[in-house]
Each structure stands twice: as structure tokens, then as C-alpha cells.
């Protein structure tokens, strides 16, 4: 079987398209690259969705933690503490148990025990808590002058937040947020590794790497392939976030831009 055929058969295997049976013998490099790459679909899926949905919750949580209302403030702070203070590994475990026990209550909860939804929710809450803390820190360091200037322009409430506070907060938080995004994508490998089962051998990159390590009894090929894919993914994330960072800082003169980046490297 040529490598092209392998790619045709297995490149979408992780989402159930293509050859049903996984390779049984040979285990060529091509097969390993294709299947582990196929699994990356899930890592990207979890990462992108959790990150984009988590972004909004994170903003809300950050504002909540900075709120004057005691109830909202305490609730946000506890949410952040609970998810930042416990290992993701254990969060997955509990979520799976919780969803399992909800299952008999109503059929609505059926999809929650599958990774595509259940694990996504955990990752979403997790990244919301981490980013929420980052955003909160940034919110605290928004320069007073900016807010005063907005006041002077007669901006209030929502307008002031949307046009002044929020962009500044993002700008300040961005380098740390980039790190968080990288961590989140790495964390997606834990999905099938703890708690959530893999259905019909549809799993993420680590699942397939594990499969090959198990079949070939040689961990030194599949895991470095996995590492290779993740380095690529990390580079993509860094450059995408770098572009957004440039966009966020586009109004600053060249020199200040560089300096701000330097200083912020240390937040996380």
C-alpha cells in the first residue's frame, strides 16, 4: 500500500471517515504520521472551541472578580480558584462521573458523556478560569489616565468599556493569554487519557500515538511524531496570536510596542 493510499484511508479516521479497521501490521512511518495527524483534528477542535467560547466567559469572570457586588465577586473568585487550583486530570474524572450520574435523569444528558461535548465543557470552564485570572490582572493594571480620558470624552458605561477598558485590558493580557492558549492545546491531549473513553477507536493524537506505541512496543517513534505535530501547532498559535497582538498594539509607536512586549513577558 502506498503512502498516498494510507493518507486517503486514514487521514480522517479520527472522525470516522475512511477505513474502519486500524492498521494491523507493518506500522509504517507513513501510517503513524497519518493517523497521529488525523488525531490532531480533535486536539484542534477542542482547543479552538474551548478557547473561543472560554474567551467570553473569561471576560465575564474577570469583570465579576472586579465587581463591587460581593456575591458576584465571591462567586467569580471561587470559580477561578476551583479550576485553577485543581489538576485538569481530576476535573476530567469528576466531570465524567457527574455526567454519568446525570444520564438516567434525562436523555438530554446523553451526549455529555462523550468526549466531544463533555470534555469540551471541562476544557471550556478550565480555560475560562485561567484566562479570567489573567484578564483580571490586566484589568487591574489598566492605566487610570485611559479611563479618565474616556470620561473626559463623555463616554460612560458600556461604551467606555467596549472602546477603552476592554481593548486596553486585552492588550495588556495578550502575552500571558498566548501562553494560556498554548497550555490549553497541550491539555487537550488529556481528554482521552483520563476519564473519557474513546469510541470506535476515534481518538486524539495522543490516543493514536499510544495505539502505535502499544502495537509496535516502541515508544520512541510515535511520541516524537506527536511532539513534532505539537511543535508545529504551537508555532501556528504563536504566530496567529502575534498577528492579533500587532493588531491590538497598532496605534502605539514602534518603540513603545517593543517595550510593552518585553515588560509583559513576565506576567505569566
Amino acid at each position: 500500500m502506498s503512502c498516498w493510499e494510507t493518507i486517503a484511508d486514514y487521514s480522517l479516521r479520527s472522525i470516522g471517515i475512511g477505513e474502519r479497521a486500524l492498521p494491523r501490521e507493518g506500522f509504517t512511518l507513513c501510517q503513524q504520521f497519518t493517523l497521529i495527524g488525523s488525531g490532531m483534528i480533535w486536539n484542534v477542535y477542542f482547543g479552538v472551541l474551548a478557547l473561543s467560547a472560554g474567551f467570553f466567559l473569561a471576560t465575564a469572570v474577570a469583570l465579576g472578580k472586579a465587581s463591587n457586588n460581593v456575591v458576584i465577586r465571591k462567586a467569580s473568585a471561587w470559580f477561578i480558584f476551583l479550576f485553577r487550583g485543581s489538576p485538569l486530570f481530576i476535573q476530567f474524572f469528576f466531570a465524567y462521573f457527574l455526567f454519568l450520574s446525570l444520564k438516567p435523569v434525562s436523555p438530554i444528558f446523553d451526549p455529555f458523556t462523550s468526549a466531544w461535548l463533555g470534555a469540551l465543557i471541562v476544557l471550556f470552564l478550565n480555560t475560562a478560569a485561567y484566562s479570567g485570572e489573567i484578564f483580571y490582572g490586566a484589568l487591574q493594571s489598566v492605566p487610570r489616565g485611559d479611563i479618565e480620558a474616556a470620561d473626559a470624552y463623555g463616554m460612560t458605561g458600556w461604551t467606555r468599556f467596549r472602546r477603552v477598558t476592554w481593548p486596553t485590558m486585552l492588550r495588556l493580557a495578550w502575552p500571558a493569554y498566548t501562553n494560556e492558549a498554548i497550555f490549553l492545546f497541550h491539555a487537550t491531549t488529556l481528554v482521552y487519557f483520563s476519564g473519557f473513553p474513546a469510541w470506535q477507536q476515534k481518538g486524539d493524537a495522543l490516543y493514536y500515538a499510544n495505539f502505535f506505541a502499544d502495537k509496535t512496543f516502541n515508544p520512541f517513534i510515535p511520541y516524537p511524531i506527536l511532539a513534532f505535530y505539537f511543535i508545529l501547532l504551537t508555532l501556528v498559535i504563536i504566530s496567529l496570536f502575534g498577528l492579533i497582538n500587532r493588531h491590538l498594539n497598532r496605534h502605539l509607536p514602534e518603540e513603545t510596542r517593543a517595550r510593552i512586549k518585553l515588560k509583559l513577558n513576565v506576567i505569566r
Binding site: 498554548i182 492545546f185 497541550h186 491539555a187 491531549t189 488529556l190 487519557f193 495522543l206 500515538a209 499510544n210 506505541a213 515508544p219 520512541f220 511520541y223 516524537p224 506527536l226 511532539a227 505539537f230 511543535i231 501547532l233 504551537t234 508555532l235
Partner: peptide, 11 residues
């Protein structure tokens, strides 16, 4: 930094 720690730990 580019590689998930779990992948490192496995081999």
C-alpha cells in the same frame, strides 16, 4: 515548551 508534557513523560 512546544510539546505537551504528557508526551514527554510517556517516553
Amino acid at each position: 515548551r512546544g510539546v505537551p508534557d504528557i508526551a514527554f513523560f510517556l517516553f
